[in-house]
Simulated scan of single mutants.
Amino acid sequence: MVMVIVLYLVLLVTAGVAAPRTPPARRVPVATAALFAVIAVVTLLQLTVAPGLFEALRRDRAAIGDGQVWRLVSSALVQDSGWSGAVFNLVALAVLGTFAERLWGTTRWIALVVTVQVLGGLWALYAQPVGAGTSLIDFGLGASLAAAGLLLGPAWRRAVAAVSLLAGLALLLLSDVHGGPALVGAAAGVLLTRRLRPSA
């Protein structure tokens, strides 16, 4: 368990360090702010006055198998790790989401988040059939930034990005719930970086 937590921290922190920087005024991260606000409100309700939201919105393999496919998306709105997990997930979303939206642009950011949440959620049905949290999005965004850093950055940034992506690979090999989203995010980051290069 300790090793897995270390891998979480390594992946997310190094992804933030490796992310190619854009001028702060280049793009206002409106999608990041909007998603942060929605998740914060729903999570606050879940953890205070409406605990039933967790069961209603969480990822549940049996329920999804019965046709409640929307849970692949709604599970990002509630948290399965209490207050500490909620704070961690929201801080990671604010930081990595801002970096990613400024790099990829709002439309591509939205497409990336939806793709990571849905495909990462399918992986999660195998790795952790019942659960919830914003962390699938966080790890996907982080891995996309690491992929961009690996392809676009100077030597030191490429080295940091490689550490981040290796942490994601380790999580995948350990069948951790975050390994799938990291893989999806990294693949998306490679594709998005190829689209950035002509205008770079």
Rank of each mutant, 00 (worst) to 15 (best):
P23R: 14
A62S: 09
L165F: 01
R197H: 10
A186G: 13
L145P: 15
A76C: 05
V160D: 04
L7S: 07
L53W: 06
A86S: 15
P20K: 13
A18F: 13
P198R: 00
G120D: 03
G120A: 03
R26C: 02
A25V: 11
Q46D: 10
Q128K: 00
F99D: 01
V73M: 14
A124W: 00
G179M: 00
R158Q: 10
L196C: 03
T107S: 15
A159N: 03
L183Y: 02
R194T: 05
L191A: 14
T193P: 04
A25R: 11
L44H: 12
A40I: 02
A162F: 10
V91I: 14
P198Q: 13
R197D: 15
L112P: 15
L53F: 06
W156S: 13
G105S: 07
A124F: 00
R71W: 06
D66A: 13
L93K: 03
D80A: 09
L141G: 07
E55H: 06
A170G: 07
P29Q: 01
F139E: 03
L183F: 10
D66Q: 13
D176I: 00
M1P: 12
L125G: 11
T48I: 05
R195G: 11
L125M: 15
A200D: 10
P154L: 04
T98M: 04
Q79T: 12
L145W: 12
G120S: 04
L47Q: 15
R59N: 07
L103M: 02
V42T: 12
V4L: 15
A56G: 08
D66R: 09
L53N: 04
R58Y: 04
L119V: 10
V177A: 00
V4G: 05
A143S: 15
A127N: 00
G153M: 07
G185M: 08
V4I: 11
V2D: 12
P20S: 15
P198H: 09
T106K: 01
Y126V: 14
V113Y: 06
Q128L: 01
L125V: 11
I110N: 09
T106W: 07
V118E: 14
A187K: 05
Q79C: 11
V10R: 01
W156F: 06
L12V: 14
V113A: 07
S74L: 09
L12H: 09
V118A: 10
F139K: 01
G131R: 00
I39C: 08
N89W: 05
L152E: 14
A187S: 13
D176C: 00
G65N: 04
V69K: 00
L9N: 14
S75N: 15
W104C: 03
V42K: 04
A37D: 01
R197T: 13
G131F: 00
V69E: 07
V6M: 10
A63Y: 10
A92P: 05
M3T: 06
T22C: 04
L145F: 11
S75I: 01
W104P: 06
M3P: 04
M3I: 03
T107F: 12
L196A: 07
L152C: 11
N89E: 14
L169P: 02
G142Q: 08
A200M: 12
